[in-house]
Amino acid sequence: MTALVGDIGGTNARFALWRGQQIESVRVLPTVDYPRPEDAIRAYLQGVGLAVDALQAVCLACAGPVSGDEFAFTNNHWRLSRKAFCQGLGLSNLLLINDFTAMALGMTRLREGELIEVCPGQSETGAARLVIGPGTGLGVATLLPLKDGGWRALPGEGGHVCLPIGSAREAALWTRLHDKLGHVNAEAILSGGGLLELYRTSCALDNEAVKLTSPAEVTAAALNGDAYAAAVLEQFCVWLGRIAGDNVLTTGARGGVYIAGGIIPRFVEFFRRSGFSQSFRDKGNMSRYFDNIPVWVVTAKYPGLEGAGVALQQLLEGRHSGD
């Protein structure tokens, strides 16, 4: 079987061929360059020298809740009708899944050297695992082990839960964010754009001049010894710990936590030294609940594509992978 798998986020669409239960011919295309996902797929196929009619199936992992015929991508301009998509490309098999369903299933395909330990621990047998990752947005999913040795991914929109407040400074930052944004969700801070928003809000709170103009500049300044930028990045890590800990308590994810997405791997050593671990377990009388829960940063290049392939394979084999 030759299938196409895609992992489509707010900024980039990653495509690959799925053959022999492996991905190959990976290409990354900016979503802004194409009016529709169909156009990007045709460009990808042309680039790898494959005709559209050579495909037996397509699985696309998409940012946002997936249901019904019409799908609007959360963080880019694309829209998709399942019916029109299949007719336009001559397909009979199209699987749409949430992007963090794919990311979660991608954790089952990790290879040696693709995890960096942040918090030591031991995965509890049979327990759920949490997958969370700041990128263009904040993705959250739960991975459940099945009795037959397989896995089921539970999609959700955990990036849109309310941003928690755990200190007086966080309350002051939240107040300014609320004045500007109204509802303050976790993604408002725990994302690429959110890091810049956190920097600007911090500057306004502290009467500091705004000198940095992109998330990359904030990160680079922090890593190069800028004390103020480092404090902002530290707050980012602390807030990620609070959200991850809340999700562990909600889902019972004592099997471990995977920190995925494109942001944290850029400053892993800073992250490991940050207040993430303390805020992760700072839950009052439930703090001991976290004593043996491992946390890892995922450094694999294309876990979303791998997970889309797993989802497609499970569908073809009649096993449930999640929505």
Rank of each mutant, 00 (worst) to 15 (best):
G113N: 12
D246G: 15
A172Q: 14
G149P: 08
G49R: 00
V140L: 11
L91I: 11
G252L: 10
F270C: 05
G6Y: 08
V298R: 03
L110M: 14
D33S: 15
G135F: 04
E269R: 05
E157A: 13
E197R: 15
F267K: 03
V310R: 03
G68C: 12
L240V: 01
Q235F: 01
E70I: 13
N93V: 13
L163M: 13
R200V: 09
Y289M: 12
D282T: 02
T250A: 15
N185S: 15
E317V: 07
L233P: 04
I263S: 02
D69M: 07
H160C: 07
P65R: 08
N207C: 14
T74Q: 00
A102S: 15
F280S: 06
P30F: 00
K83Q: 15
F100Q: 08
P265N: 01
W174N: 10
E170T: 11
V295N: 03
L154Q: 13
S274G: 00
V52Y: 02
D206W: 04
V48S: 04
H320S: 10
P37A: 09
T136P: 03
L305F: 07
A43C: 14
S167L: 09
G156R: 10
G225I: 05
L154D: 09
V26E: 00
A3S: 15
A13G: 14
W174Q: 10
V118H: 08
T251F: 15
L223N: 08
F290H: 03
Y199V: 08
F276N: 03
A260L: 04
D179G: 15
E269P: 02
R82E: 14
L177F: 10
E112V: 15
L173T: 08
G194S: 12
G262H: 07
R79W: 12
G261C: 00
L305W: 04
G182S: 07
G6W: 01
A57R: 04
L91C: 11
E114R: 12
Q22N: 12
R176M: 13
N207Y: 10
A231W: 02
G166N: 11
T74R: 06
D99V: 02
A230L: 11
L146I: 05
A204D: 14
